[in-house]
Design a protein around this nucleic acid. Sequence first.
DNA 1: CTCATGATTCGCT
DNA 2: GCGAATCATGAGA
Length: 203
Amino acid sequence: MDKLKRSFYRKSALELSKDLLGKFLVFNKNNKKFIAKIVEVEAYMGEHDKASHTYMNKRTKRTETMFKDAGHAYVYLIYGIYNCLNIVSGDKDLPQGVLLRGLEPMNEFDTISLNRFDKKYNELSKTQIKNLTNGPGKLTQALGITRDINGCDLTDDILYICEGEETEFEIIESKRVGIDYAEEAKDFLWRFYISDSNYISKR
DNA sequence: CTCATGATTCGCT
DNA sequence: GCGAATCATGAGA
């Protein structure tokens, strides 16, 4: 379970997004170590991507994190209630990132269930199990990821990513979700997911 | 099963 | 003041 190095993140968001599939996300909080497999992602390509917060290199207090070097976490509030987690890619001053949209939990099932539904894992319905982490707002709620870790360095110990299992999987490409305002960019096939995963937000 | 809607905060104009 | 990289819920089919 070795932590991936900065060099792993130093590529375009489009390349990184596919490379992230199947990897393990590790998050340390309250003396717990959450481990979850990354199964769904979206690439946000920054300057030339109308769907990106950093379209036209828009640099504000909120988007500042996206301009950091590759291998940082960008966490922002969406619709007033949910947090979304992105992995900053590219390079310093190249504001690209990968939105994590689906995770498969590997441990701490009871903690995750309590965070989402205030119930233990063995009390969940089948639908609730699927809904634990199959969306960008759901997975942050499940792991307890909030904006207080915005900007944290993935080469430190709070949040990082490890190599996954050596299993084969099929990658599906599709349109990104929730960006109808983005004109032609809304049709780009920049969402990627593992075809047979149970934790995909939208087929 | 498929819609439609409200929730709720903050960043930006 | 507007609207957002979402989700839960409730109505109808």
